[in-house]
Amino acid sequence: MHNNPLTRPTWIAGAMVVLALFLLPAAVPRFYVYMAALILITGLLATSLNMVLGFGGMYQFHHAVFYGIGAYGFALIATKTSLPSWVGYLVAPVVAALLSLIMGLITVRLSKLYFGMMQISLGSLVWALVFRWYSFTGGDDGIHGVCPPEAVSSTTGSYYFTLSVTLVCLWLMYRIVHSPFGRTFQGIRDNPERTSAVGVDVRRHQLAGLVIAGAFAGVAGSLFVTVEGCAFPELLFWTLSLEILVMCLLGGWFIFLGPMFGAAVMMTLRTFVGIYTEYWTMIMGVVLMLIILFLPEGVLGLFKRKTTGDKPAEEEA
């Protein structure tokens, strides 16, 4: 685990995946391009959640709120103001980060599970506001017909935009996770008491982590509106938060790209299983149960353990 130097094969594999993603629109029908964009966005959202969850050990149970607020931030700038809609891409992460800061100030002093439950509560309050404030947010209808900037409004254009922004965000988050801040954050995850004993203000770092993760979720939200052209209250409903938690679990919390992998698997499953049965959530539930029972470190976690021979680190109480 130490240093995690990217080996040569990893680089080559990564470069090939990126290349394939850039060539995708030329090779597959539009629906798949659209699907790929949604997977990237959801994966970005799950990765931002995992920054605080897997690398910070914080029970961020209601991460979707920041995604939804980012989406609404962008949609409102694009529809209700005369500002160029590009501005929305700046506003989305900023409002998400601000909300994250406000919620964090209230929640960060609480212990683990209390923190998580408080998050669900405050997030639901935000949802309730969005759901009811018809004149501003469109209430349960949401905001439709959002026009993204012309350059990125076609399916292909929005896909390339999404892909580029996602790659940049992933690179930034990768840097953060492997930065001194990221390392300290992992220290806090493993042992907050000890981290404070070596001179680190744990609460401040946790708050900073929350704000950063919230900002990236906000970016994902603005991308969603770019691709879908609308924002609606379900984007910040608690079930979505739990779904992205499941994606993190599925891919593996302790691996940077685990959540992206989990998102890809879940979204693909949902689309294709959904063709054959309307009971796909039951299938997802059963899969989740099996993962919890047999694969608590996720699919990639198992793979990594098999290849590196790491012992599984024991669960904290």
Binding site: N4, L172, I176, H178, S179, P180, F181
Partner: peptide, 10 residues
């Protein structure tokens, strides 16, 4: 350095 976000920790 613990608030250094983009340095290479390793």
């Amino acid at each position: 350095k613990t608030f250094n976000l983009f340095g290479r920790a390793r």
